[in-house]
Simulated scan of single mutants.
Amino acid sequence: MKLRLFPQETAALELLAKMAQQSVSAAQVLSEMFGARRQDHQRIFDELMNHERQATELQRALLTQLRTSFVNPLPREDLLDLSEGLVASMEQLVAVGEVVVLNRLDRIAREASDQLEIVNRQAELTVTAMRSLGRLDDLEDYWIETIRLAKRANHTHRVWSADSLRELSIGHYARNAEMARALLSAAHAFRDIATNVGRIIVKES
């Protein structure tokens, strides 16, 4: 493992961790939306959008940090790729909320909450991982667990889709399918971040 000497290098990692924390907060907001009355959905969605804006501001701060710093804990392009993965995960979480609002959903399928629980756990793991990028040897378990959770999300998605196709009308099925795709895409976005971390671990070892 390459030796890291400078404590000030952690600034970029803290910004990445704060971006990941916005995803945790977004997942918590979605959990509130899933249990809320329809008339409250727009207000909750506005809160979700605020977390997306904060993530965007944090990415902008990261870009400034990368341009102005002399030494970074990892190559600039790796840090940039991770930030783009975090933005992608946030976009998918926002998409879930948008599906709820646009389709005026009164009842949220149990499977949606199951998927959101998986995504929230991935986001929590990612917060810790972003802070630990200076100690890559400690991140193999994160890499493996996040990918395992994505496989679990794949299974839940398949079961949810099959059950919905059998039990729901065409209209209800379409709305469920749209939400299911957005939640699965969020799980895949976090999987892609973990895969990127795995690539960095191999490259930097």
Score class of each variant (00 low, 15 high):
54 Q>S: 09
81 D>N: 04
135 R>A: 15
25 S>I: 10
133 L>V: 00
120 N>G: 11
114 D>L: 04
56 T>M: 11
192 D>K: 06
21 Q>S: 11
120 N>T: 14
2 K>I: 14
168 L>M: 06
109 A>K: 05
117 E>R: 13
76 R>W: 03
194 A>C: 02
92 Q>D: 13
163 D>H: 10
13 L>A: 00
159 V>A: 15
3 L>F: 12
55 A>W: 02
9 E>V: 12
100 V>W: 04
157 H>W: 11
43 R>E: 10
62 L>C: 04
99 V>G: 12
112 A>H: 08
110 R>M: 06
136 L>R: 07
176 N>E: 04
51 H>Q: 14
99 V>F: 09
151 K>E: 13
197 V>E: 05
34 F>E: 08
78 D>E: 09
52 E>D: 11
79 L>D: 05
91 E>A: 14
141 D>S: 13
83 S>K: 01
169 S>I: 01
92 Q>A: 13
204 E>W: 14
41 H>G: 06
97 G>N: 08
90 M>P: 07
118 I>G: 06
26 A>S: 06
46 D>C: 08
40 D>Q: 06
82 L>Y: 01
104 R>L: 01
111 E>A: 05
151 K>C: 10
123 A>S: 04
83 S>D: 12
129 A>Y: 00
182 A>H: 13
151 K>S: 13
191 R>T: 09
159 V>W: 10
27 A>W: 00
191 R>P: 11
127 V>Q: 03
101 V>L: 08
145 E>C: 06
24 V>S: 02
33 M>D: 03
91 E>Y: 11
158 R>W: 14
38 R>N: 05
205 S>W: 07
57 E>T: 05
66 L>H: 03
82 L>T: 02
34 F>S: 06
20 A>Q: 06
5 L>F: 12
92 Q>W: 11
19 M>V: 02
63 L>Y: 13
93 L>G: 05
139 L>A: 05
135 R>P: 09
49 M>G: 12
140 E>P: 07
77 E>Q: 08
38 R>D: 00
91 E>R: 10
102 L>E: 15
148 R>D: 15
61 A>H: 08
179 M>V: 14
182 A>S: 13
68 T>S: 04
20 A>C: 04
196 N>Y: 06
60 R>T: 11
191 R>V: 01
43 R>F: 03
150 A>Q: 11
164 S>W: 13
117 E>K: 13
81 D>I: 04
174 A>K: 13
178 E>W: 02
29 V>A: 03
50 N>H: 12
81 D>V: 05
41 H>W: 05
7 P>M: 01
41 H>K: 10
104 R>P: 00
32 E>V: 04
148 R>G: 12
120 N>L: 14
97 G>I: 09
120 N>H: 08
31 S>L: 10
185 S>Q: 12
114 D>F: 07
121 R>T: 13
60 R>Q: 10
194 A>W: 01
157 H>P: 12
50 N>V: 14
192 D>Q: 10
18 K>G: 03
121 R>I: 12
192 D>H: 07
